[in-house]
Design a protein around this nucleic acid. Structure first.
Lengths: 218, 218
DNA sequence: TAGATTGTTAATCGATTAACAATC
DNA sequence: TAGATTGTTAATCGATTAACAATC
């Protein structure tokens, strides 16, 4: 019965943001409740799996009725930790960095780009939106002062490992790496790699094989 | 024995680009061969799994020796289909679109951004790198004429489904969706979603839980 | 030959799904 | 009460890993 477990499968955690995403849409549409069947249809996940996933954290539904949309949103936000604000440090003020800094989807989930760094003197002192681009030299100081726990690496590949090292040393606990480099991080730091090209490559496989139906992404 | 199978697990396909990535680094370093043990260390994958993965496509190694780096690169490229050139259509010439269009990691794997579209009259006719930004109205015509099979959606969320529909109708077979919207695509079209915020959200989970070691991403 | 390392089988492990009693 | 839908068990399915004979 609804006891919170210690170890939760990674797959479960990866699906929660997808559920949240769909739930937020339902909330916008003014739907008060949702069944696992409907939620599964929208998120393209088996309904049984949704129910199973949720039981890892408790029991949030009502038999015969379904799930209260707002309550489930709150619960998932609480589980993920997106029920409070998180400051982000963005390293690299190039095209990608700018795109991330300006992306307004972040604020909806409590993410605030709190500092942007670059090592290019031509960029330092400039602005991205209403943030000043700071000198890489100040990285450790600013991150510690602001208590930033999340770092985004959007620099050229050759600088990636060094940036990762410095972010981790400065106390950042979660790293999002947008370079193709397999950076090493110390224990206790969570690394997530997002290389658009690697994603293109694996998708490419299905291009030459007509029979295969698209395996759906998270 | 080394017979090519019909169905290959998705996980296998997702790991191939990671192997390729490491192999290319090894090649740059001038290493002629690599063992599954070393490859596994670099790609953070169990060596047995690498060998198992590869047997889905044949047997490419030499017992006692390991894998010839160049040969394995060729093989994986052939499997993925990245041994020839692929033209990309990029829809959305905003920050993200610009970042993708200018990303030089694409060409290394044979990807060429062949056309950029936007619906904003202020952007149409402008340039991103050496590409002219085209009017969305010309999307179908240009894609058909150029035989483009891959589309990248980098538009505001509200336009995502419409863009996906039009790309698919124009004959695009692989879609990379950078919006948080769960777009629907017809059978035979492979969809890959990459929402940076969803990735941040799931990574966030590990931020509040000190014990957990980072589960490695592809 | 001895040492290394693959290809492949078999064992393990974990995740997904179907089924259904509980209950709204 | 009848219908709907959850929470949860048990069955299935598939993926990972260990082990080892084959072989370079």
């Amino acid at each position: 019965m609804s006891q919170v477990e210690t170890h939760i499968p990674v797959g479960v955690i990866e699906r929660l943001p997808a559920y949240l995403n769909v739930l937020l849409q339902l909330q916008t549409n003014g739907e008060p409740t949702v069944s696992s069947a409907r939620l599964g249809e929208l998120a393209r996940v088996n309904p049984a799996q949704i129910r199973r996933d949720l039981t890892h954290f408790g029991s949030f539904g009502r038999r015969g009725i379904g799930y209260d949309v707002s309550t489930l949103i709150e619960r998932i936000r609480h589980i993920l930790g997106s029920d409070h604000i998180h400051r982000l440090a963005l390293v690299g003020a190039g095209n990608l960095g700018s795109a991330i800094a300006r992306y307004d989807g972040l604020s909806k989930h409590g993410f605030i780009v709190s500092a942007v760094f670059d090592s290019d003197p031509g960029k330092i002192g400039g602005r991205i939106g209403d943030l000043a681009v700071l000198d890489m030299q100040d990285l450790e100081r600013v991150i510690k002062r602001q208590g930033i726990a999340i770092g985004v690496i959007a620099v050229p590949p050759e600088a990636a490992q060094d940036v990762a090292d410095r972010l981790a040393a400065a106390g950042v606990r979660v790293l999002l790496n947008y370079t193709p480099v397999m950076v090493r991080v110390p224990d206790g730091v969570t690394l997530h790699n997002t290389d658009p090209v690697q994603e293109l490559l694996h998708t490419l496989y299905y291009l030459s094989r007509r029979e295969t139906v698209a395996p759906e992404a998270r």
